[in-house]
């Protein structure tokens, strides 16, 4: 049987500060002009380098090159991937712009593979909505551009934003799988380290002994608060209104506490040693997730003596 797996998409808009060189390069693209930097040996680099690799001097001498260039090498893409410049088949290419000594990477829209070749003359197709970003070059296309197409270059761009979106399939280990499937039945299972005999919930490699977990042990849904904090600070995505309590709960039969919410009691009455029980969501809503337990709340038992959880501080 396959272990549980679930899709996960991670997305983040990276904002990057641009220095004086790339800031002017991106401003140039916004205004339909391409700037390169000239190193001490006289070579013009596009995209521009910020420092001379030989003299190590900062490069501030930016020179304009042509929006027309020549394909140096290429790779055909039959099925474009998410985020790439074109959503129909195209060629990646290294393109040396006229006036530049180094080629740059971009997409070339030739329609079909038989039209792309080394030596092909191509020109920039500008994005209709420039923002001061490498994507202001929508792609390249066969042909040559008129000599002068751009406007006066305005202020340097200071920040560029690049959205990053990645997709994963998270697959659980055999131990995690067993733990999550038990939760779907309203049970909490841990596993005992074969070396030190401690019971880990959820099951994991024993960090003291570095050995795989052994005997499967069912623990109760009652436990002791070993330590806690009162959350007073609001944050994005918060589901409860502060103040509320997050505690470490040492379940009876386990040797490591789990973090959870303590509700049903004013936050100023939560204390170390408080005995609590799990409050499960409606059985109809259970699935293979720790969220089946909504929170813990005091169960009326006398406080546990400090010695019983002192090892877990």
């Amino acid at each position: 049987m396959d272990t549980l797996a679930a899709p996960l998409t991670i997305a983040f808009d990276y904002t990057r500060s641009l220095g004086p060189v790339l800031g002017r390069f991106m401003a140039g693209l916004r205004d339909h002009r391409v700037l390169g930097s000239r190193t001490a040996d006289g070579r013009v680099h596009v995209p521009p380098l910020e420092f001379d690799p030989d003299t190590l001097a900062p490069l501030t001498d930016l020179v304009e090159v042509s929006p027309t260039g020549t394909v140096v090498t290429w790779a055909w893409v039959d099925q474009p991937l998410e985020g790439q410049p074109l959503d129909h088949p195209f060629a990646w290419a290294l393109i040396r712009l006229d006036g530049a000594d180094t080629p740059m990477l971009h997409a070339v829209d030739t329609g079909t593979e038989d039209k792309i070749k080394i030596g092909l003359r191509v020109r920039i197709r500008w994005s209709p909505s420039p923002t001061g970003h490498i994507r202001d070059i929508a792609c390249f296309e066969p042909g040559t551009a008129p000599e002068r197409t751009g406007h006066e270059i305005g202020d340097a761009v200071t920040i560029m934003t690049t959205p990053i979106r990645l997709h994963y399939t998270h697959t659980t280990s055999v131990e995690e799988d067993r733990y999550l499937r038990a939760l779907a039945e309203g049970r909490i299972v841990g596993q005992r380290c074969p070396a030190c005999c401690k019971v880990y919930v959820p099951p994991r490699v024993c960090p003291a002994d570095g050995v795989a977990p052994g005997e499967v042990v069912e623990v109760t849904d009652k436990g002791t608060v070993t330590t806690f904090c009162v959350v007073n600070v609001p944050f994005a995505g918060q589901r409860l209104t502060p103040p509320y309590v997050v505690a470490q709960v040492l379940l009876d039969g386990a040797d490591i506490p789990i973090p959870h919410l303590i509700l049903g009691v004013p936050s100023d009455q939560v204390r170390m040693g408080l005995r609590v029980s799990a409050v499960w969501r409606d059985r109809a809503d259970w699935s293979t997730t720790p969220e089946n337990i909504d929170h813990f709340e005091p169960n009326g038992e006398p406080d546990a003596p400090y010695e019983s959880y002192a090892e877990h501080q």
Partner: peptide
């Protein structure tokens, strides 16, 4: 790849 001029194009 370079996060300013290359990675935003997602070259595979």
């Amino acid at each position: 790849t370079d996060p300013y001029t290359v990675a935003p194009l997602w070259p595979d």
